[in-house]
Design a protein around this nucleic acid. Sequence first.
RNA 1: GCGAAUAUGGUGAAGUGGUUAACACGGCGGAUUGUGGCUCCGUUAUGCUAGGGUUCGACUCCCUAUAUUCGCCCCA
Length: 429
Amino acid sequence: MKVSKIKGTLDYFGRDVKKYRYIENVARSISKQFGYLEIVTPIFEATEVFARGVGEGTDIVNKEMYTFLDRSEKSLTLRPEGTAGVSRAYVENKMYVDPGLKKLFYFGQMFRCERPQAGRYRAFTQFGIEALGPGSAYLDADVIYFGYLFLQKLGIKNVKVAINTIGSKSGRAKYEEALKEYFSEHIDEMCNDCKTRLEKNPLRILDCKVDAKSDIMKNAPKIIDYLSEEDIAYFDKVLKCLDKLGVEYVIEQKLVRGLDYYNHTVFEFIYDDKNSNIDGLTLLGGGRYNGLSRQFDGPETDAIGFGTGVERLMLVLDELGLFKDDEKLVDVVVINIGEETKLEALSLAAFLRSNNVSCEIDYVSSNLKPQFKLSERVNAPYIIIIGSEEVENGVFKLKNTILKTEEMRKIEELNEIFNIEGEKYAYKK
RNA sequence: GCGAAUAUGGUGAAGUGGUUAACACGGCGGAUUGUGGCUCCGUUAUGCUAGGGUUCGACUCCCUAUAUUCGCCCCA
């Protein structure tokens, strides 16, 4: 039977898996620096977690989720994003009883059934952070700075930080009402997408690219008129903090984000280089989601976080040539000349390995050619060559493939050459 | 859901309406070598995504299907 991978999924191996782990390692180390601890939540959850958490009106819930019935007819869903599950876990495990902030990060696969394209897959990996507990403008800025520094550490410089506020939940609700009313009067002149958005999520109309330049859009109600003084002061403070931290940003009034749970500060990091074919790609996005915990019957809790797509970052690293893979696979390849010394070579390899020297050996052939091919393939800096003459005389040939030198050494010197403490290797007659 | 492009061996690929489907890399076998990576010889797609059609004849033209890729929408 010929089977192939499901559309929009990836096999990682070779260089790609190294790139993937490289990003993961950077993510983990920066999380540590900011004091975020890992949380691992299930790959699947009850469907309500996302339906309620992410929001009934969102694209994710309406057309992108992998939802299925288990054997007891319960509706489950493969997680399409990380925040809802973390919020559910926060409430369920009563993490709120600890005073102060819970700072958590996750790194894992998410699933969305949509059309794959550059940097977008159906099974993809997100790294995200969530800070649950007392909110503050300082925290908002710190979270944004986290994202900023993360991309910097990966070497990704040309990034536009777009930021906006959509106010408190009540402000947002009033604003949505106003938008609905306003756009209802003009809906005939607008694009089809906007017509559906009007019912589902009027905020998103602002995000429309088709009608962006029309007068209707220009004259639409502004969020600023629906923000309370506290909301505005809060946002100003976030911006001041970013100034101080040296994060350059652009205020995008029309940045609203597609998930229902957001309020107050929202942001997106967008790759910004007109000359690049990945210009405009969203690399990281997030915002504040105060009160999401109420969806899971938890206490009203402030929270903020972001998510970033690892596959997209990999795409950027490739595009910019930022990931170099010059890792040597092993330190030594042991080559034997003639079948009669194969066992001696294996024994020598075993000795090296047991003393933390990584080492490779050809298990099949005793011909020189394939053995040298192997050492090329694994990029070994050293080659040890033994034949029956060497064993007879208690020596071995040591080849340095970088300096391209070759010399005969006594077997007693092996430990010294590879910095091995303890018992010395000796040929057994 | 909409739109576009592509589909030849292990890989990168060239190709023409008409006998043996170019070339390169890789693989395999061998020659020469106690030391390869240079050289030399041989070998490596009864088949060009699948099915149908046009034709005396199609890998090359048409249709359908499938897959991949890219874009829109939305997002990470």
